[in-house]
Design a protein around this nucleic acid. Structure first.
Lengths: 164, 164
DNA sequence: GGGCTTGATGCAACATTGTAGCATTAGGCT
DNA sequence: AGCCTAATGCTACAATGTTGCATCAAGCCC
């Protein structure tokens, strides 16, 4: 009977990198043996400094307005690579599209809040799933995704203004 | 400061129906004022008796092999309607596609396990997110989705057989 | 610094999942 | 049995993601 210690176990596959906050995007990419290209660089920097998970679309838009030439497919592939290397994480939002956030501390995980009104996703530091109870025999958990759904503060305020 | 009692609060919008297990699919559909059509009937029965959440595709296939004529769009709409009426729930799996499960007890919610090998999703009775800690001010939670990812028992066994 | 190798890119074409509009069918009420 | 309209079935389209392949450029070697 496999019992589950915590839904947020140690990370599986991140190499020999503790990703201290001051490591530059350029160094982190090179450290994985990947080529440092303008797309990867810009995307990783964007994710590292972002305060909430970004969708492919949002990233593409930001790249465009930063004057960085890019192709839809290239961006998909860059994101895939970053996730594969443990430099970014993929979050299933409420919609079909994935969202991505930078990974600073490889061991650190947190829940997310998805606003069903505006679609915004925010990270919830300090909120984690419970130490889980038993799982059916033979099941092995690698990670847990906890997504809270509801209405964010901004949408709540907008609501109040409309009918106070 | 809004504080969060539990990530699985009481259900929001399900009408005056406690959906006891012995209520037939036909009755449950009619009780909501919907027309009892072969598609809705077959889908709801499938979801009610299913042991794990089904994808649109799986449902379509099952309908087809049961000889029930159906259109892709009709199935989407039937599922939408069932969810809207609180007779089914929509679960975001790891993939892009939604999965659906029947709602027996409206108040009852549970977590899900997604096998990253075979893609199967199973329901985890008795596993719920922790009583959550505080949320940023102004945030209102309506529901929480907890999805554990890893390897299911079947895939684990298959693995052992290959290299014991 | 210049050339080479191969990983990364850009493009075009395709796949999957889901929606919208609209004419037609059939559920269920009288 | 007939009527009204909710559901259906088509077609067309939108959004998101993937594959194949020719071309480019990162970074290694000299």
């Amino acid at each position: 009977m496999a019992s589950l210690q915590t839904p947020y176990p140690a990370p599986a596959r991140v190499p020999d990198d503790d990703a201290p906050r001051h490591t530059s995007a350029r160094e982190r990419i090179a450290a994985r043996g990947g080529r440092v290209t303008r797309t990867r660089l810009a995307v990783l920097e964007m994710l590292q400094h972002g305060t909430h998970p970004l969708s492919h679309d949002e990233i593409a838009e930001a790249l465009a307005s930063a004057g960085i030439a890019h192709d839809r497919v290239t961006l998909y592939r860059a994101l895939d690579w970053l996730v594969e290397q443990g430099l970014a994480r993929r979050i299933a939002g409420g919609e079909r599209a994935w969202r991505f956030e930078g990974v600073r501390d490889a061991g650190h995980r947190h829940a997310h809040f998805h606003c069903d009104r505006c679609g915004q996703v925010v990270c919830l530091e300090g909120l984690q799933p419970a130490p889980a109870t038993a799982l059916p025999s033979g099941f092995q958990v690698e990670r847990a995704d906890l997504v809270l759904h509801g209405q964010c503060a901004a949408c709540g305020r907008r609501d109040e203004e409309l009918r106070p």
